[in-house]
Design a protein around this nucleic acid. Structure first.
Lengths: 347, 347
DNA sequence: TTTAGCACTCTAAACCGTAGAGTGCTAAAC
DNA sequence: GTTTAGCACTCTACGGTTTAGAGTGCTAAA
């Protein structure tokens, strides 16, 4: 349902939302008349408020209190009234600094980004990935460490390094390993992991008839490596900050938040569901996860070579500063994508 | 000052401590008379309590309330009265399972251990390390990835893998790298990293006069790798659990706890200070760190080849179950040391 | 030395009463 | 028709008072 509000109703709704975001208190007609010059008296505003309440956009915690925005009110605000606040040049500069610094390891960049965002906002920041799945392979090594055991090291073109032991059920010679690694590098270099698992497998098998069993083990390990970061790479920060929000004065609420942070599963799910381009804003019950139905969540994916390799999110109370928060998420996700897409490639 | 208490005073003190640990409420004379059969009336117990209070072992939150143990009271209890509760065979079994499972990566074992301990207690669990510094080197590889860049991979005899890029200021050939790696392996295999940095350096330099500059870079990287886990390897869990303790009903307290968890520095310090054998119990102001002076902290180091490579801790309110908590710390640290000292070596 | 009895103290919860903020409604003004 | 002043009404938050109950310390008797 797309409601059409006359200008003054929009102004009143905007005032209610923005004042409530700042003060966390119900907003009275008098406050609006004083702080937001609409050129009318409190009484008139009261009449508009009564209408807005009937439409379900604002509500009263109890009779004779001021109004707070309903979840639909926030939605209307985000969709139609909100002016993206933009970042100051200083803040943009800080963000650039994080991505400009020489950093060989992506994990480090992500951690630095989180630290920065916790300074820019008072919300929970969380990142998934980046998964290797859509990154291009730079090189594979198979290093023999025992007769039936090798260490596999993979480097992606973006500089991400992963390693894992491969255990065979039979002795394997160093020459065998070297040969397999050589063939893998010849065939796979420059391909993304998702491309590898599908297409070029056949040719490799033909070239390595003798080591077919060995190859099976190796490919399986490669696959699990490519997925690993997807499975357990969740970075987060800012838990302390969120507690500053008056919504979390109640210990019960704090406990719920900590469940979220320590459990990780829900946060992963939220990031995993994020697929579209641009930022996604979910307000309260718009979230599918029961645990965050009294929260606002802003997410965005970041890209590598046009593919989604990870996502980030900001989480706060429903009464969060959507204008600012979404500007930040937007800018960071964009910067991270730029960073990844190789203008900084170190090879 | 070592106080000598007669048997009945000891019994009363023990009752006060143990009842308070369970209920978190002041303990009245009547409660003790009823629940802990000392064969005397509440009035007699009141007299003993008056004495204990004068000695500073228990205190009254306000006149006409029951008594709670003072920090000295806890200390007396821990030193002289506490009976280590021992774990049930079931619990011991659970612990063994964690260490018995095939696990190639130590980080995984530590994470599993944390998860288990959070199930066994309601306290904050934290681990440092393990640092490679005191682990024996199994092998080093130098893998060329670019003219001026190599990937260094180190495997310790305990199966810990670390990697890091080495950047040179000059082109290096694959042969040079191979040669350097070969010499390093010949000289260093089986030595711990702390031994390496001191003694055997000279002989390596003599053998590699041509690559001396290259070697400098490599050794520096090795050293930073050996220390890395020391610097940022802090694992923890159980934050949610601690909130169950009634001490953390106050949001102020919760915030302090989260500062501790998110800051990490204080926890590192606590583990770093732990050096002795066996377990260490610090009660309230016995802690040097201001942030935890209203907490009880139990720590123990774990060993590898007789060397301290890391430590673990349990943190709760001053009113924590020292008997149970120290049993657990003791048992886990012991099991982890056993696990590390190679009865499970995979090479 | 122990204990019963009793007066005393303190806390926590329940229960006012009041001030203040804010609304809805009505009737007058524009 | 729209806006606004005025007023009665409602609800919350806060401070003060009362009360029940738990627990002690002290005294005197066992």
């Amino acid at each position: 349902m797309s409601l059409n509000l006359n200008l003054r109703k929009q102004q009143v709704l905007e005032a209610v939302v923005e004042d409530h975001i700042i003060t966390a208190e119900p907003v009275s007609s008098r406050t609006i008349a004083r702080k937001y010059q609409l050129g009318v008296s409190p009484a008139t505003i009261r009449n508009e408020m009564a209408d807005l309440e009937e439409m379900g956009l604002i509500e009263q915690p109890h009779t004779s209190s001021g109004r707070i925005p309903s979840q639909q009110g926030y939605r209307y605000y985000v969709d139609r009234l909100m002016r993206k606040s933009g970042l100051t040049t200083d803040e943009e500069g800080q963000i650039h600094t994080v991505f400009a610094r020489e950093a060989r390891e992506l994990a480090l960049v992500v951690q630095r980004t989180i630290k920065l965002v916790t300074q820019l906002t008072d919300y929970l920041v969380f990142f998934s990935g980046p998964q290797l799945e859509h990154a291009a392979l730079q090189q594979v090594w198979l290093i023999p460490v025992a007769p039936e055991r090798a260490l596999m090291v993979i480097v992606s073109e973006t500089g991400w390094v992963e390693n894992k032991f491969v255990d065979f059920d039979f002795p394997v010679t160093a020459e065998d390993m070297e040969q397999v690694a050589g063939v893998l590098n010849d065939h796979f270099r420059g391909l993304t992991f998702s491309q590898i698992t599908r297409t070029v497998l056949r040719s490799v098998y033909q070239e390595l008839t003798e080591q077919r069993l060995l190859l099976d083990y190796v490919l399986e390990t490669m696959e699990s490596l490519a997925r690993r970061e997807c499975a357990d790479g969740l970075y987060l920060g800012g838990t302390r900050n969120v507690l500053k929000q008056p919504e979390y004065q109640d210990v019960q609420q704090v406990r719920k938040l900590l469940d979220l942070v320590e459990g990780e599963q829900t946060l992963r799910e939220i990031l995993h569901e994020t697929t579209g381009e641009g930022i996604t804003v979910r307000i309260g019950r718009e979230n599918r996860q029961g645990q965050v139905q009294d929260c606002g969540v802003i997410t965005a994916v970041y890209l590598l070579g046009g593919n989604i390799v990870g996502a980030m999110g900001l989480l706060g109370p429903v009464r969060m500063n959507y204008a600012r928060a979404s500007s930040i998420v937007d800018y960071i996700a964009q910067s991270l994508s730029d960073y990844l897409s190789g203008s900084h490639s170190y090879f």
